[in-house]
Each structure stands twice: as structure tokens, then as C-alpha cells.
């Protein structure tokens, strides 16, 4: 069953994180825009707040609308992964654009995050 994050959690959503919804034990987060040193703290705050609130078993980040990330954004993803591992959760990245996937490969994180072509594929994993 799909449900949007309830209104009391609406502050989680922003231009950078425009949509968040819950599906079973998974929280699906849509991220949008280029993410670099300037706005990665905003992504970090949004993800950590959501993780603290919901403690999901699975966090699925849809990156279809993220054409670019730098190392500061990668550091945010790693921090989210480590938080999830502490609560027995998993982090999935879906719909990766080539430039983002390339940086994950350079960082040797492409085999550490669970990558999926679509959100549905991630939900089935």
C-alpha cells in the first residue's frame, strides 16, 4: 500500500527532495537537481530527518532527476547507508543517470549501494 508522508512530515519535502512516500517497509524519496557542496547539506538534513522519523527497513532514492553529484553528495549517501545499516536497513539507488553512476564507480560504491533501474525493481529486490 502506498501512502504519502503525512502532512506533519511535509517539511521533509523541498525543492531538492520534492516527493517522499511510504510503501510497505520502504520509504521512497525522489531527489531532484544537481547536488554539490552548495546544497548537499540540505540533502543530508532531509535524509537524516526522514531516517530518524521513520527508521525504514528500506530507503529507495530515485535519482532520475539528478544529472550531477559531487563527492559531498556521495558522502551524504554513504552517511545515510551507514545509518541504515545500524538499524538493519538497506539503501537502494534507482534510475541513475550516467554521470552519477560514473562517479559511484570511481568511488567504488557501485557494488556497495543496491542499484536498480526503477523503483519497482528496487521494491522487488
Amino acid at each position: 500500500m502506498t501512502q504519502p508522508i503525512r502532512p506533519s512530515n511535509a517539511k521533509v519535502n523541498s525543492e531538492l527532495v520534492p516527493a517522499t512516500r511510504v510503501e510497505g517497509d520502504a520509504v521512497l524519496v525522489t531527489v531532484r537537481g544537481e547536488i554539490d557542496l552548495h546544497n548537499s547539506p540540505e540533502l543530508r538534513n532531509a535524509l537524516l530527518e526522514m531516517l530518524n522519523q521513520r527508521q525504514p527497513k528500506r530507503l529507495i532514492l530515485n535519482l532520475a532527476q539528478v544529472p550531477y553529484m559531487d563527492s559531498s553528495a556521495i558522502a551524504v549517501l554513504v552517511e545515510a547507508l551507514q545509518k541504515l545499516r545500524k538499524i538493519g536497513g538497506k539503501l537502494y539507488l534507482t534510475n541513475l543517470q550516467p554521470r552519477v553512476k560514473g562517479l559511484l564507480e570511481i568511488a567504488r560504491l557501485d557494488t556497495i549501494f543496491v542499484l536498480a533501474a526503477t523503483d519497482d525493481e528496487a521494491l522487488k529486490k
Binding site: 559531487d70 563527492s71 556521495i74 558522502a75 554513504v78 552517511e79 547507508l81 551507514q82 570511481i106 568511488a107 567504488r108 560504491l109 556497495i112
Partner: peptide, 10 residues
Amino acid sequence: PLTPGGLGMI
């Protein structure tokens, strides 16, 4: 790769 820092230089 899970330790932060250094990716920029890489």
C-alpha cells in the same frame, strides 16, 4: 570507499 574524504583527489 565507505570512509569519507579523498574522493576529490581520486
